[in-house]
Nucleic acid binder design. Structure first.
Lengths: 147, 147
DNA sequence: GGCGTTACTTGAAGTAGTTCAACTATACAA
DNA sequence: TTGTATAGTTGAACTACTTCAAGTAACGCC
């Protein structure tokens, strides 16, 4: 067997296990989002806002791959919940910077901490496996290059 | 540091990387589902149907944690697309077994093959990492025990 | 100052998914 | 047989999200 084929085999087996595990734990994440009173779209929105900087509507719409009017609608929802506000940017008053309110920052912190908390099954793995997992997974890109 | 704390640390780092990578590749999976002309709910529905056996509406509603009427609505959609049919079960004619049509089986096969195909970034990892990943991830439960 | 461009908003229409209450048909047990 | 429970369906009301077309306001260049 070629080394290429061997890589594909191992990767396929690994991916299947990871994928199944992600699906098995999906309900936990829904629970987190529910607890914070968010919809899935709102939770994604909140986590793409930088607590220390505003972001234009346009850049948000691009990241979310949605219509600008859709971004307006979503940010409206965040604003109505007191999680974010719009401030006109000095210099170019056309662009609105969306910034997290203190409540928004707290909610984002809670959201991210909760989602990043490793599930018990994972923590229960042997230390050897955890170290290997950490090393291997750490080499994966956290963001996909623009295509 | 206690061995418990060490496990938590490694697990947290590993989980973060995995979680980020899953999010980074989410668009690929949306693409697969779109290509098959399915909604996310339909794709989940199709993948929980066994190609070799029917399943009652009730058991589907339980797995999907939704109202029975919701299951009716979803299976209606599958039926309208020619992916599944209902057959009354002999012996208890109240229960309808939902079975995949040949087209439904093909679609399911395609869906699962596509979702289980490991992303390129993963295949590109060093063989040592892949083997370790496979071994570690293989120890994770694929289904969550009922709670 | 006029003009094209950019950033964002508004409104209308549509799909997807959820929830609840009411209903039908079958099974099963007293 | 008569009641009671179970499996599934129907319909109505609602929320979340998407898409498109049209509109407003500010910018920046000539």
């Amino acid at each position: 067997m070629s080394s290429r084929a061997r890589a594909r085999d191992s990767a396929a087996a690994a991916w299947r296990s990871i994928f199944d595990y992600i699906r098995a734990t999906a309900a936990d994440r829904v629970e987190v989002i529910d607890r914070l009173g968010l919809t899935p779209a709102e939770s994604r929105a909140i986590s793409s806002l930088d607590p220390n900087a505003g972001r234009s509507m346009r850049s948000l719409a691009e990241e979310w791959r949605c219509d600008p009017s859709n971004a307006t609608w979503l940010v409206d929802r965040l604003e109505r919940q007191g999680l974010a506000t719009r401030v006109a940017r000095d210099g170019d008053r056309r662009v609105k910077a969306v910034v997290l309110t203190p409540k928004g920052k707290r909610t984002r912190r809670d959201l991210i901490d909760s989602l990043y908390r490793p599930p018990p099954d994972l923590v229960a793995l042997p230390q050897r496996d955890l170290d290997a997992l950490r090393a291997a997974a750490g080499k994966l890109p956290a963001r996909r290059a623009n295509r």
